[in-house]
Amino acid sequence: MFTSKKTAPRLSVDKFSSLISDNLALSGDLEFEGGLKISGKVRGNVRHKAGSTSLLALSAGGCIEGNVSSHDALIDGSIVGDLVVEHLLELHSNARVRGNISYRQLSMENGAQVQGTLTRLDDQVQLQLPRPAPVAGEEAEPA
């Protein structure tokens, strides 16, 4: 009677300020701000400008060989390298990621493939906390 189905978070894509189309191959690192849509090939690191609310969209035919960072990301192509998404990551059905992924929120469709570790950013913060010093007379815990 009162059933409510949770819907997965979705990003709104209104417009992109930058585009690397499918007929373009780029070699070198790039930094972006706002929206970036990649349908072509990039060989180099792709990172968002620190402190910006950015959106990266990688189309099904798009490919990035390098480390990637963004505030939000919609991935439907392939990435060979580590991926860090500060907010919401959507891995669509054609997504292929060979590298470690760090994210805060994750939506993953059937068919998406990841070869690497998935780490939630909140968990990473807890892992970086130092261990408490042992109290006198107690044995230290093994590392």
Score class of each variant (00 low, 15 high):
Ala57Val: 13
Gln126Lys: 11
Gln113Phe: 15
Asp76Pro: 01
His92Arg: 11
Arg47Cys: 11
Asp76Lys: 05
Gly62Asp: 03
Arg47Glu: 11
Thr119Tyr: 07
Leu83Pro: 05
Val80Tyr: 03
Leu26Cys: 07
Thr53Gly: 01
Gly51Tyr: 00
Leu55Met: 07
Phe32Ala: 02
Ser39Gln: 10
Val68Cys: 14
Asn23Asp: 15
Ala57Arg: 02
Glu90Met: 10
Ile75Trp: 10
Ile75Glu: 05
Leu19Cys: 09
His48Asp: 02
Ser70Asp: 07
Ala57Lys: 04
Glu65Leu: 08
Gly81Asp: 06
Asp123Thr: 11
Val46Ala: 01
Leu24Asp: 05
Gln105Lys: 12
Gln124Arg: 15
Gly61Asp: 13
Leu121Tyr: 04
Arg98Lys: 13
Ile64Arg: 04
Asn94Gly: 01
Gln115Glu: 10
Gly61Leu: 05
Ile79Tyr: 00
Leu55Val: 02
Arg43Ser: 15
Gln126Tyr: 03
Thr119Glu: 15
Val97Gln: 12
Leu24Gly: 01
Leu19Ile: 14
Val84Pro: 04
Leu88Trp: 05
His87Phe: 10
Leu89Asp: 01
Ile38Asp: 05
Asp122Glu: 12
Asn67Arg: 07
Gln124Ala: 15
Thr53Leu: 06
Gly28Trp: 15
Leu55Phe: 10
Arg96Glu: 13
Leu91Arg: 05
Ser18Gln: 15
Gly77Cys: 08
Leu56Asn: 07
His71Cys: 13
Gly40Lys: 02
Leu106Ala: 09
Asp29Ile: 10
Asp22Glu: 13
Ile20Ser: 08
Gly111Val: 00
Gly77Glu: 06
Cys63Thr: 11
Ser102Ile: 07
Ser78Thr: 11
Glu90Tyr: 14
Val97Ser: 13
Val114Leu: 15
Ser78Ala: 15
Gly34Leu: 05
Ile20Cys: 08
His71Phe: 13
Leu56Pro: 06
Ala50Arg: 08
Leu56Ile: 10
Ser52Leu: 04
Leu24Asn: 06
